[in-house]
Design a protein around this nucleic acid. Structure first.
Lengths: 139, 139, 139, 139
DNA sequence: GTGGTCTAGACCACT
DNA sequence: GTGGTCTAGACCACG
């Protein structure tokens, strides 16, 4: 299914939560798709079933999946629903970083150039009319 | 001196680290300025001295302060030194957020407008020639 | 026949019990009406026959249906009988909610207005002499 | 502290959640009051610490308490905050019961009389001008 | 077979 | 001492 990194500082159950959400966002788990069973995933990842249970429990509390005794666990949301739900937190984290960078006297132009670069990376033939050639110098 | 928030999810020793760095960045602690002693600060904040010790130890390990046996602890860096040191991590965090927001299909324009807003907030008389009036609509 | 909702948190056998009782209350299943056979219903709903058996067993235990060896299962009660039987539990649930709402300092008037509204909803031309116009404000 | 009923069908951890919320609503646990430690409560109730942990974890996720490593667990809400948070669910449960009772042909007057009785129970000298003497007959 | 609850006991991070 | 994570293994309810 997906992998867990034992060296990652995040607790295992949070890694599982993140992986499941990732699978949904990537469109690999659609709404009402059945998740691997608690025991199956536990065996697969060589992890205790209780840890999987905890992860699934958290996901259910957050409305990302729903579990039914004797039947299994299923995806409760579409990818777009999950995106919409994540947006506010992510945006606030973005703002916080901008504010801190502003305090450290990074210029507005540098940040905007950074945004531009990320949005236009991996594009074919994008070197021709690059309108922010100065942005690569400093950051 | 400065305050600790018991409701903050950060461990106390990390709060102390953050406060000391904050004081330096604000220019209130200059280079070679003496920090409050472990015992004094512990008494002041009603906190276990071991916790203060741990915070000072971390700060020393990071080169932010230095300690001299029997004399006390002192600031090792100027505000600008500390700023320079923090920049890479902060910038990487910024990039990570931009990448995730891009994946969630937030437009480049919205992010740039958000940056603009933060940089031009709290300015007097900035409502006259606002050149990004559309930016307030969505986020 | 009737539908089962896989997303409903109720166990399937309880959903079946509820549906059967619903059919009786709606007058669609009269006294001595024959229920679908365990196997037929199981096939129809794509559900394990044991689950249907469990539901029918519960219904029989509660005196709502009766079974005859080799012939099938039949409704044991009229709609009005079933209503009478349900009343005490429902009323106790109602009282419990009123008591809890009272503890949360919801006013008697608000609750009565709420009852009024539910009883007079969906009536044609009932806006003329509405004697509790203030009731819509708070709840 | 408080008691757990092993015969109650509710899982133990939910009973604990309910007890803690009850204590807050009764005003016995004020905001920022420290809860009994996981281990202490586990010993007190002769229950496994993991079960307490699960209950506290749920309460924290719901914003009712906050836990800090090495310090303890504390109430996060005032009684009135908790009341406000509970109201919508409770009101919806109330409405559902009213609707079902309406379907069972219980009269509006009977329900209102029932509400009246609960709100005026335990009052001294309330027998004199009882304006709904007929209400005691049927329910 | 499924999920859900609980116990016993270990180990870690924080104060 | 505190909370938090994880394991191992048992038992129950549901299908």
């Amino acid at each position: 299914m997906f992998r867990i990194d034992p060296r990652c500082p995040l607790p295992i159950y949070e890694q599982i939560v993140a992986r499941v959400e990732e699978m949904i966002l990537l469109g690999l788990y659609e709404k009402d798709h059945q998740l691997p069973s608690v025991r199956a995933l536990a065996g697969d990842l060589a992890i205790n079933p209780n840890t999987i249970q905890k992860a699934y429990g958290l996901l259910e509390q957050n409305g990302v999946i729903y579990s039914r005794q004797g039947r299994g666990s299923f995806v409760a949301l579409s990818a777009s629903d999950l995106k919409r739900r994540r947006l506010p937190d992510l945006l606030e984290g973005f703002r916080k970083h901008v504010r801190e960078l502003k305090e450290l006297e990074v210029s507005e132009e540098d940040l905007i150039a950074e945004v531009y670069r990320i949005y236009h990376i991996n594009k074919k033939g994008d070197g021709s009319d690059d309108s922010s050639p100065e942005s690569d110098k400093k950051l």
